[in-house]
Simulated assay, not measured.
Amino acid sequence: MRKFIFSILGSIVLLSCSDGDLEIETIDFDSVSIQFCSEPDPTTSNILFKINDSEALILELQSGVLDNGVVGETVITESSVPSRSQVTYRIFSENVNNAYFCDNIPPATPTVVDEVEAEDGAVIIETMVDPDDATSFIHNISLSGISFVTGDGERITNLTISEFGDVRTDVP
Rank of each mutant, 00 (worst) to 15 (best):
E163S: 13
E73G: 00
G153M: 07
G64W: 11
P131N: 12
S147H: 09
V32K: 10
R168L: 13
P82E: 09
F137S: 11
E154R: 15
E60H: 11
F92Y: 15
V87R: 03
D152C: 00
Q86H: 07
I24L: 12
L66H: 05
T44G: 00
L57Y: 05
V87N: 05
I24Y: 08
E55V: 00
G10I: 12
D152H: 11
E78T: 15
S18R: 10
S142M: 09
D19L: 10
V112L: 10
T157W: 07
S45L: 05
G72E: 07
F164S: 07
D28M: 02
D103W: 02
I91S: 11
C17V: 12
T157E: 15
I76W: 02
D103C: 07
L9A: 14
T157C: 02
V81A: 10
F92H: 03
L61Y: 06
S79M: 08
T74W: 07
F29C: 01
I156R: 03
T26K: 14
D21H: 13
L59I: 09
V70E: 08
Y89L: 13
I34S: 06
T74V: 15
P172C: 03
Q35M: 13
I161Q: 06
F164L: 08
L159Y: 02
V32F: 03
N98G: 00
V113W: 00
F148Y: 12
S144W: 09
I51W: 08
E78S: 14
A134E: 15
V129G: 00
N98A: 12
P107R: 03
I124K: 15
D120Q: 13
F164M: 08
F29T: 04
D67K: 09
T88S: 13
P110H: 11
G145L: 04
L15M: 13
R168P: 00
G153S: 03
G165V: 01
L48M: 05
D41F: 08
N95R: 11
D133V: 09
T77L: 06
Q86N: 13
V75D: 10
Y100A: 07
S33I: 02
L61M: 11
I141G: 02
T74E: 15
R155V: 14
N97E: 11
T74A: 11
S85G: 06
I12M: 10
A108T: 14
V87I: 15
I124A: 05
T127S: 15
K3V: 12
I34Y: 00
E94V: 00
I24T: 05
I125L: 11
P40F: 00
D30I: 10
I24G: 01
D53T: 14
D41N: 15
L61P: 05
S85H: 04
I27T: 02
T127K: 04
L9M: 12
E23G: 01
P110F: 11
A122C: 04
D41Y: 08
P106W: 04
C37Y: 06
R90Q: 15
H139F: 08
T150V: 02
E73V: 09
I156G: 04
I76G: 00
N97L: 06
F49N: 02
L57V: 02
D133Q: 11
S18H: 02
I141N: 04
R2W: 10
A118P: 05
V70K: 10
V87L: 12
E73T: 12
N46D: 11
R84F: 04
G151Q: 14
P42E: 07
S7H: 00
F29N: 07
G64F: 11
E23A: 10
P131E: 13
T169F: 08
I12T: 03
N68Y: 13
